[in-house]
Amino acid sequence: MIFWRAIAAATLFATTPALLAGEIPPDARRSGYAFMGPDTQAMQDDDTINPGMLFVLDGEALWGRKSGSANKACADCHGDARSSMKGVAARYPAFDKASGRPVTLDQRINLCRANHQQATPLPYESRDLLALSAFVAHQSRGVAITAGDDPQLKPFIEQGRDLFMQREGQLNLACTNCHDDNFNKRLAGAPITQGQPTGYPLYRLEWQTLGSLERRLRSCMSGVRAQAYDYGSPELVALELYLMSRARGLPMETPAVRP
């Protein structure tokens, strides 16, 4: 019996070489949606009461509005976002040829503003940037996440994984200690999720607003009493990329609602 189990375990291990010890296998990956109560789930599911949809509507208006000294709108190049942006957010962060690094969706929007609209960048967590990225990501709702498939991203995914595994802060805890090893348990009464970034930017009831994945990561870092990385820093982008590649196959939910 033990012998056969060992064989089965060895076979399982051999067929999933990309998975490191402690990582969550694909069929066990669960969105934060599965960890929350029915009331919050209902709020996400119904577009007429999902508060994130207000940002999506704002983003739709911004998509069509001319901006910058080039006097161009997103729509002037990209046309109807329903078709041109479908599936795009599920591939972000994506490799940017010009800089040779991954960029987040927020950074891509600001690169577009700088290069094509000759407009000033929108500040991180500003209403307009969140609205635009929510509108773009909303076009991928239901699309399976494939971020990180580009082989050029490999070293950056590894950097993100190392950061995820790195203990830090005065409490000396790594992301993996909770989100790989202890999901389903409770921290001060609240369920610990797997940390799958399926619905960003998302509406967090605790924040009373929409927020980015970087905001969430920074708040976890403050939680373990570590010095949070700056918005847009290579470390946060690498972590975001690793988390998206770790969520491979899960459907996008933007705009998600979370407690």
């Binding site: 830090e168 005065q170 090893d181 009493r225 010095q227």
Partner: peptide, 20 residues
């Protein structure tokens, strides 16, 4: 262990400014 060492200062990474 995931239990922090409550009376220790060495061997920690990126401790927040307010806690260093």
């Amino acid at each position: 262990t995931i239990m922090p060492s409550f009376y220790r200062m060495g061997g920690l990474v990126r401790v927040g400014r307010n806690f260093a």
